[in-house]
Design a protein around this nucleic acid. Structure first.
Length: 559
DNA sequence: GGGACCTCAGATAA
DNA sequence: CTTATCTGAGGTCC
């Protein structure tokens, strides 16, 4: 295999013939960028990259498309695999950064007393900033077929995110296309119900063409023309090249999401009379078989999934005893007067959460309003104390025993659950730890880089320093089932609200990124190297199967 | 109070 | 340089 070809490969294989396959392997991201990434990532823990991608339910049994490739030529596909994994962390990093800065700016907007001259479109603003800072995934030419690093089931909050990672390069347009050998071919579409589409749950999608002022109510409706996006989609039929489909789910839990639904082929198109009486184009797209099932489809039968399995009840109240609580704030208006609120002061002058209850950024310690505060439960500074909001489920993973996943989409910064454990002095922890208990340090997530100075460090991948040892005991909640990952999607945040003992903060787990339904929740067990010994004095290590490209392959703990 | 509808400013690619 | 575009926020109406 030529090194240069590596980047040309996409994960897509439709037919069996080499000729057919070639059609779908077009227009890669830049070769130099790909090679750089491969170099940077492939040396890290390669043997750990087994069956699953980091924390993705739908990928545990991997895409059949890739499997087929692996049969063809093993060496070749390992390179491709590495490339994908490298790109994947790149993609995740980019999205996290975007989301983190969005939360930050949104937070600032919310704090403004009058919203007159405020930026209404935080998404555009942040997109611009990241573009200027060259944080976008570089795209030399538009990719036809799978985009490396993006997997079926991935979810996004804003359209610009699709643009940022090269999944769909139109900011608002629904049909993205590229010129190829004198013809325009559609590369991706966004189906969000703006037009009169048939968006049922089958693998067939009837997509309405663009134009005709269907979306623009101000103008006279016209017949749609077979040009631009419509022409591109029509051309796809002859070329048989795949189209990436991104669906919008407006009925998602909490907020709307865009979901990457995988590759489709345009089968035919026709004209129809639209709602306004003018002609529109309709395109029939069929999902290419062999791709991972979409979780939102599975989500339609949530009841089936949860049957016979344990659904987690609301988070157990913490185990801290009832010492006299400290004095809280006297705010009666939900602590919106920042300069007057005692709790806000403890947080450095701001409420650490957005109005949508997402934590803005990791801090060494977050002070929520507590029982002694006069503010109502609806106060923006009461989030994690209100317990689990997402539906969690314990499930059997492929290679890691039991794990935990959510039945809902989870927005970045959302509170997930409280780790209920018991604080122990380190020595005592060593002494009392038996083989089957979880023992690990909970780091504090303090990150000193200012947002603008250290953009890439806004939301840490893993706790950094340690400040105590927690042992999960028998009354431990869902946290005991959450697996370790070297590139986790949760992180632990210290929170105080019902007492002021900084040695015993609540360990609250928040989402570090957008998490799709049924995707496994993981976090970094921030262990301290060489700290855990077995009974004969040997350091305990355990193979790690998290599948992350950053995986070291070993977890130093007894598990 | 929430959902459906409207309006309007918008950034970018074509 | 226009112009089109399955945004996204905010408002209104029921």
């Amino acid at each position: 295999m030529e090194a240069g070809e590596r980047g040309l490969q996409t994960n897509y294989v439709s037919g069996t013939s080499q000729m057919e396959r070639k059609k779908h392997h077009l227009l890669p991201p830049s070769k130099s960028a790909s090679e750089e990434i491969i170099k940077a990532k492939s040396s890290e823990g390669s043997y750990c990259k087994r069956n699953s991608y980091p924390g993705r339910n739908a990928y545990e049994n991997r895409s059949a498309l890739v499997m087929r490739d692996e049969k063809d030529s093993l060496g070749h596909d390992r390179g491709q695999e590495n490339f994908h994994l490298g790109q994947r962390s790149h993609v995740r990093e980019t999205l996290r950064l975007f989301q983190a800065v969005c939360r930050k700016l949104l937070h600032e907007e919310e704090a403004k007393p009058n919203r007159q001259n405020s930026h209404k479109r935080v998404d555009y603003l942040v997109a611009r900033i990241l573009k200027d800072k060259k944080k976008y995934i570089p795209v030399d030419k538009k990719v036809i077929g799978s985009v490396p690093g993006v997997e079926v089931g991935d979810e996004f909050q804003y359209r610009v995110e699709l643009n940022m990672i090269g999944l769909h390069l139109q900011i608002q347009g629904g049909i993205d296309y590229v010129k190829h050998e004198g013809k325009i071919l559609a590369t991706s579409i966004v189906a969000s119900g703006g037009y009169d589409d048939k968006l049922d749950n089958s693998d067939v999608l009837i997509y309405t063409g663009q134009g005709g002022n269907v979306m623009n109510g101000g103008k006279e409706p016209e017949d749609q023309k077979l040009e631009r996006g419509n022409l591109a989609l029509a051309n796809n039929i002859h070329e048989q090249n795949p189209v990436r489909v991104i669906r919008s789910d407006t009925k998602a839990f909490e907020y709307r999401t865009y979901i990457y639904d995988g590759l489709y082929l345009v089968e035919r198109y026709w004209q129809d009379v639209g709602l306004h009486g003018k002609l529109v184009y309709k395109f029939k797209l069929a999902r290419i078989p062999g791709q991972p099932e979409l979780s939102w489809k599975v989500g339609l039968c949530v009841d089936d999934i949860s049957q016979g399995k344990e659904l987690i009840p609301n988070c157990a109240v913490n185990t801290v005893d009832d010492e006299m609580p400290p004095k809280g704030c006297d705010c009666t208006n939900g602590c919106s007067k920042l300069e007057k609120c005692a709790c806000v002061a403890k947080n450095g002058g701001e409420i650490p959460y957005n109005h949508n209850r997402a934590i803005v950024q990791a801090k060494p310690l977050v002070y929520e309003c507590g029982p002694s505060c006069k503010c109502p439960p609806s106060c923006y500074n009461r989030v994690s104390q209100q317990g689990i909001k997402v539906q969690l489920e314990i499930f059997k993973t492929e290679a890691r025993g039991w794990g935990v996943r959510s039945l809902n989409s989870i927005g970045p910064g959302s509170f997930i659950y409280e780790f209920v454990g018991e604080l122990l002095e380190e020595k005592e922890a060593e002494r009392t730890t038996s083989n089957d208990k979880y023992l690990f340090n909970i780091g504090n997530n303090y990150n000193d880089g200012s947002l603008w100075g250290g953009l890439s460090n806004v939301m840490p991948d893993a706790p950094s320093s340690s400040c105590g040892v927690v042992e999960d005991v028998e009354y431990g909640n869902v946290g005991r089932f959450v697996n370790h990952s070297c590139s986790p999607n949760l992180y632990a945040q210290n929170v105080l609200y019902d007492h002021e003992d900084k040695r015993m903060p609540h360990k609250m787990l928040f989402a570090a990124e957008n998490i799709s339904p049924l995707q496994e929740l993981t976090y970094h067990y921030s262990y301290v190297i060489d700290q855990v010994y077995d009974s004969s004095g040997n350091i305990k290590k355990k193979s790690c199967f998290c599948g992350s490209s950053e995986c070291t392959g070993l977890v130093n703990l007894s598990n």
